[in-house]
Amino acid sequence: MFAELSRLQSAAAVQAAIDEFVRLGRATFLARYGYGKSRDFLVRDARSGQLCDSKAIVGAAFGYQFPQEGPLKPSDFSGGEATVVAKLQRLGFEVVRIGEDWGVDEVRATVASYFEMLELEAAQKHYTKTEFNAQLRQQLRGRSKGSVELKHQNISAVLHGLGLPFIAGYKPRSNAQLLLRQTVQRFVLDHPELMVQVVNALEEVKTPAEQSFQAVVVEPPSMETVVQLSSRDVKPRLPRRIDWAQRDEGNRTLGRAGEQWVIGYEQRRLNDAGRPELFQQLDWVSDRLGDGAGYDILSHDEPGEPRYIEVKTTNGGHGSSFVISRNELEFAAEMEEAFYLYRVFQFRQTPRLYILRGKLVDQLHLEPLDYRASFRRLLA
């Protein structure tokens, strides 16, 4: 209730709640007081620069000012700009709208640092993320190491959304501020030679050093819900020559190498299952007949139990997008549980694999890329 919230008048109580937040960590603090993550506003700790969930801080601060009454519950008051934000600002605290607090110069410096690391990674040159982080923070306004890492994850998310490679160590994390999205897109458009160099380097086919096929299978990426662009927003039209997903699909040399690797994986899988004789029935269909069958390799689980395998290979990371044909989607739906998509990633370094089984339309977000044009109109 607002009447209760209006009684909070102690800046020291707010700071005590912030200190507890920093000491315990976000997850533990929120669980302790029963709050969820803030959707819109965070309050900054002036001492450490860390951002804290605004409503949870206010609720906990009430308990510090009135220990005999204890902290406020989330249902006791409403959050937002007119209540929590106004209260914190009147008490002298900086409140930040999520994702919109970094300035132009900070964002530009962060994006430039990220792409410098991406270029080194593509060239397989050694670098240390911690050192880059420390050097970058010297150009920023008191940002913490964690906040810089989050910004790098946001950049990965923007690149992933554009179908471009990103730094494997920075898992894409959405909710990037508009300024950051615009700056990343502008960097890509202004540096086509660099992007071509990165993509070409990551597409280079090398024989993987790891050939044991042990501990290579991982879980597929989780489905991420993102905000759809308004029809009024202009989607950047990147040059086709730096369309990462399309280039991976078109590079048959990389695709063929990935299929050869999967054949080795299948041999190991069948041997481990005690059915080495089934490997003698393995058929590399795409090599023998070419593309178009809806799958690349025919293997088996048991005699009479086929495993139709479609292989998608990339030198990119776990969450890299890929191109799949309408024919492959239809074949997956037709074969149901007998269809397997093997997604091989990090192929140039140490190959890893995740497997999707059955109908793909239920497991992937599918975006149309091309259309067949003709002068024939189909009647319903």
Score class of each variant (00 low, 15 high):
L5T: 14
R7T: 03
A11E: 11
A12R: 14
A16L: 11
D19I: 12
V22W: 15
V22D: 08
G25V: 07
F29R: 00
R44N: 13
G59V: 03
A61Q: 09
A61G: 01
G70T: 05
K73Q: 08
S78R: 15
A86N: 01
W102Y: 11
R108V: 15
Y114F: 02
K129N: 09
N133Q: 15
N133T: 08
N133C: 05
L140A: 12
R141Q: 01
R143H: 04
S147T: 07
V148P: 00
H152C: 05
G161P: 00
F166D: 07
Q177R: 09
T183F: 07
P192S: 08
M195H: 03
V198L: 06
V199K: 00
L202R: 10
L202S: 06
E204H: 15
E204M: 14
V205G: 02
V205M: 05
Q214P: 06
V218M: 00
E219W: 05
M223Y: 01
E224H: 05
L229P: 05
P236E: 00
W244E: 02
G258D: 06
Q267I: 02
R268D: 11
A273G: 04
Q280C: 09
V285N: 08
V285T: 09
L289D: 12
L289E: 15
G294T: 04
Y308A: 10
I324Y: 07
A332R: 10
A333K: 08
M335D: 09
A338F: 07
L341T: 01
R343F: 11
R348S: 07
P351L: 04
L356V: 06
R372T: 08
A373L: 13
R376Q: 11
